[in-house]
């Protein structure tokens, strides 16, 4: 089980030893299973980004430790010898296209592997593979990344991370600012990487519909603590609790609670449109059969 990600009593304090000291993570213990598609949700400032940045040791814990791929990260971990870990854990930040800088798409994607000492030839091959994975046409290779559309630029940035062949991919709000088609393309890509490349996907998101549509596990954070960890059904079954966390419900569940408030006796909190339609159909047609 050395492939799991394990947080053991991790606390992270920003600006430690100053009057501004603030616990961004407060005694967090959690295990993220290998091969899972885990969504991390919580309102702004709840500690989501701080949590995921510990997984590739961008941040080190103030106390406690994290085990990732047999590697332990603790308060004494230095930035030496982290290459292997960071190769395993790919991190796609918000608006990753802001990090593009090379003259051509292929050079930008090759930058990562070359940085890890892969030969020019192998880096090119890895970059070409990554372009295929994200669905970028090969005739874009020699174009400037800055001439591409927003959705394409984002895919170049993600390909740059995938070219390092990580086993864990962390996506921090990967669809922010994209139109519905771009949004779906990126989320479907995440699913494909999970299903076909068997990657562990960790998704930080505000989009509850994506949580329902794509995630198998959900971690809910509030004030630096993990307050719930379960599957989407378990997380969203209690609308009042979800609201108390300053979170939204998935659209279908939200609409269902409005129907219930209006006196429509739905029995479950449906998380998808199909389930909501089933529930409504049952009420409407079930009644007709009795007549």
């Amino acid at each position: 089980m050395d492939q799991e990600i394990n947080f053991n009593q991790v606390t992270h304090t920003y600006q430690v030893n100053t009057p501004f000291a603030q616990d961004a993570l407060d005694n967090v213990s959690v295990t993220i299973a290998p091969g899972s598609f885990t969504a991390i949700i919580g309102h702004t400032g709840s500690g989501k980004s701080t949590l995921v940045q510990h997984i590739n040791a961008l941040l080190k814990p103030t106390t406690g430790e994290i085990a990732v791929y047999g590697r332990t990260i603790n308060p004494n971990t230095t930035n030496k010898n982290l290459k292997q870990l960071r190769k395993h854990v790919g991190m796609v930040f918000q608006f990753p296209e802001k990090q593009l800088f090379e003259e051509t798409v292929i050079k930008d994607i090759m930058f990562g592997p070359k940085n890890y000492g892969v030969s020019e030839q192998d880096a090119r091959r890895d970059a070409e593979d990554a372009m295929k994975l994200v669905g970028l046409d090969e005739n874009l290779s020699e174009k400037s990344p800055f001439d591409l559309s927003g959705g394409q630029m984002r895919r170049v940035a993600i390909a740059g991370v995938l070219a390092m062949k990580p086993q864990i991919l962390i996506l921090d709000e990967p669809t922010a600012g994209l139109d519905p088609r771009g949004h779906k393309e990126i989320m479907d890509l995440a699913q494909e990487l999970h299903d076909q490349q068997h990657m562990t996907i960790i998704l930080v998101t505000h989009q509850m519909d994506d949580v329902v549509d794509y995630a198998s596990d959900v971690i809910v954070m509030d004030q630096g603590k993990i307050v719930k960890h379960g599957n989407p059904q378990e997380i969203f079954s209690n609308p009042q609790w979800v609201y108390s966390m300053h979170l939204d419900l998935p659209s279908s569940a939200e609409f269902a609670t409005r129907l219930v408030d209006e006196g429509v006796p739905l029995r479950h909190t449906p998380l998808t449109i199909e389930k909501l339609a089933d529930e409504i159909a049952q009420l409407v047609q079930g009644g007709q059969e009795h007549e």
């Binding site: 139109d179 088609r181 159909a281 047609q285």
Partner: peptide, 20 residues
Amino acid sequence: IGLSAPFTSQLMTALKARGI
């Protein structure tokens, strides 16, 4: 053209598929 339908349109389509 790369857009999605509003939530209510999607629900109406799903209901229609169930004969409503």
